[in-house]
Amino acid sequence: MSELDGERVSFGYEDVPPEEKAARVGAVFSSVATKYDVMNDAMSGGMHRLWKDRFVRRVKPQPGEAILDMAGGTGDIAFRMAERGAEVTVADINQDMLDVGIERAIERGLTGLAWSCQNAEELGYPRAMFDAYTIAFGIRNVTRIDRALAEAHRVLKYGGRFYCLEFSTTEWPGFKEAYDLYSHHLVPQIGKAIAGDADSYRYLIESIRRFPPMPEFEGMIRDAGFAQTRVEPIMGGLVAIHSGWKV
Results as ranks from 00 to 15, higher is better:
208 I>A: 12
219 G>F: 07
168 S>K: 05
140 R>W: 01
188 P>N: 10
180 D>I: 08
24 R>V: 03
81 M>C: 10
171 E>K: 15
4 L>Q: 14
135 I>S: 09
23 A>R: 15
102 I>G: 00
232 E>Q: 11
214 M>G: 03
33 A>L: 11
37 D>V: 06
72 G>C: 13
73 G>Y: 13
218 E>D: 13
2 S>V: 10
157 K>S: 00
113 L>T: 04
1 M>K: 11
217 F>Q: 05
36 Y>H: 10
4 L>T: 15
97 M>E: 00
240 A>F: 03
153 H>Q: 00
66 A>T: 05
83 E>Q: 13
166 E>A: 07
226 F>Y: 07
18 P>G: 06
137 F>H: 02
158 Y>T: 10
245 W>M: 15
45 G>R: 03
148 A>T: 06
218 E>Y: 08
65 E>M: 14
67 I>S: 08
187 V>W: 08
161 R>S: 10
178 A>N: 05
210 R>S: 14
235 M>Q: 04
227 A>W: 01
218 E>Q: 15
50 L>Q: 10
205 I>E: 14
208 I>T: 12
61 P>W: 13
59 V>Y: 12
97 M>A: 02
64 G>W: 04
139 I>N: 04
11 F>D: 02
130 F>C: 05
204 L>M: 15
246 K>P: 09
42 A>C: 05
94 N>R: 03
167 F>Y: 13
231 V>P: 01
52 K>F: 13
220 M>D: 04
180 D>A: 13
72 G>H: 11
41 D>V: 07
219 G>M: 05
106 I>E: 05
2 S>C: 03
228 Q>E: 12
173 P>A: 11
32 V>M: 12
205 I>R: 11
225 G>E: 02
47 M>G: 00
108 R>Q: 09
225 G>R: 01
192 K>I: 00
18 P>N: 06
46 G>D: 05
223 D>N: 11
156 L>E: 03
160 G>R: 04
175 F>R: 02
96 D>I: 01
197 D>T: 00
205 I>C: 12
125 Y>E: 06
30 S>R: 15
17 P>W: 04
160 G>N: 04
199 D>L: 12
13 Y>A: 10
140 R>K: 12
131 D>A: 09
128 A>K: 10
10 S>A: 13
178 A>K: 15
205 I>P: 05
192 K>T: 00
116 S>I: 08
213 P>A: 14
85 G>H: 03
65 E>D: 10
109 G>K: 00
35 K>D: 14
236 G>L: 04
99 D>Q: 08
92 D>A: 06
224 A>D: 05
199 D>C: 01
78 A>D: 08
234 I>A: 01
129 M>V: 01
177 E>V: 11
59 V>K: 10
76 D>K: 12
227 A>K: 07
198 A>H: 02
98 L>S: 07
52 K>P: 08
207 S>Q: 03
111 T>M: 01
187 V>D: 04
218 E>M: 13
5 D>N: 09
42 A>K: 11
72 G>E: 08
115 W>C: 01
3 E>L: 08
77 I>A: 14
232 E>S: 08
27 A>G: 09
218 E>L: 12
